[in-house]
């Protein structure tokens, strides 16, 4: 465990160094972060000028949702995207063997190797928007914050697992770099209450592209409107997809090793 923590720190250090090289990228991405949240808020504002509520949620409640999407986007951007999207590259270039011969679990390596903690803008914006929304709703209590934290972790686990599973497909279909970018869909679809969609789409957004669990549940927790069924559902779903993704990864590694010997 201690060795793993140390490794994570070393990895972060290395990526920070690389990122400092690309300094103008920081500016561009920060701008993109601000614009992206600005887009969502402006969009909401334009929509709420026309209608009083969306799927039964008020403006402030949807605002919390937007903050959560921004926060999760941040995690994907600094962590999952840089790390997991490299899997395809490793496999295509046949560089995967280099990872496999290291005396550390390969899943750990691909997960933590490229953590880019340099840009915290996304996190700051996300948390601010959540805070503003919660304040306006009047739901800032330590209990709600605790719940929010728990369900944010569950969301991150779900997104991680899906991303890993999709990237793992690279072992079988080597030419699908873009598969995992499907994950980005959650940031559009997830910016709205699932209840705002027609019924068939609600099912899709709960079980296939689980924005209900990933964005809606934490937002409900933060605004004190979470039912225990949804809460338990989210936790169960997170556990399920995490185990599934790990299983798929191990299967892929076994196949890879036996095929490339």
């Amino acid at each position: 465990m201690k060795r793993h923590l140390k490794l994570i720190l070393l990895f972060i250090r290395a990526t920070v160094q690389i990122q400092l090289e690309y300094r103008s990228g920081v500016f561009g991405r920060t701008l993109a972060n601000i614009l992206s949240t600005g887009t969502s808020v402006m969009l909401l504002w334009a929509m709420f000028r026309q209608v009083p509520s969306i799927g039964g949620w008020s403006f402030d409640q949807v605002l919390v949702l937007v903050g959560i999407v921004t926060t999760i986007e941040f995690v994907v951007e600094i962590w999952f995207y840089p790390s997991l999207s490299k899997i395809t590259t490793y496999v295509q270039r046949g560089e995967f063997d280099v990872l496999l011969i290291k005396p550390v679990a390969s899943q750990f390596l691909v997960t933590f190797r490229h953590l880019q903690v340099m840009e915290l803008t996304g996190l700051v914006i996300g948390l601010t928007v959540i805070g503003v929304g919660m304040h306006r709703v009047g739901s800032v209590t330590s209990f709600n914050i605790l719940l929010l934290a728990i369900f944010l972790v569950a969301s991150v686990v779900i997104i991680y697992s899906l991303y890993l599973a999709l990237s793992t497909l690279a072992f079988w279909f080597t030419r699908i770099e873009e598969v995992a970018s499907m994950i980005w869909l959650h940031s559009t679809a997830g910016s709205f209450p699932v209840a705002a969609y027609p019924p068939w789409a609600r099912l899709l957004f709960t079980f296939v592209l689980p924005v209900a669990f990933v964005t809606n549940v934490p937002a409900q927790a933060a605004t004190g409107r979470l039912s225990w069924e949804w809460g338990l559902g989210a936790l169960a779903f997170a556990t399920f997809v995490f185990c599934g993704a790990t299983w798929l990864w191990n299967l892929a590694i076994r196949n890879y090793s036996s095929a490339s010997s």
Binding site: V16, Q17, E21, R23
Partner: peptide, 9 residues
């Protein structure tokens, strides 16, 4: 090194 990276940043 990290410090060098920061400086050149």
């Amino acid at each position: 090194g990290l410090a060098g990276s920061l400086r050149s940043f």
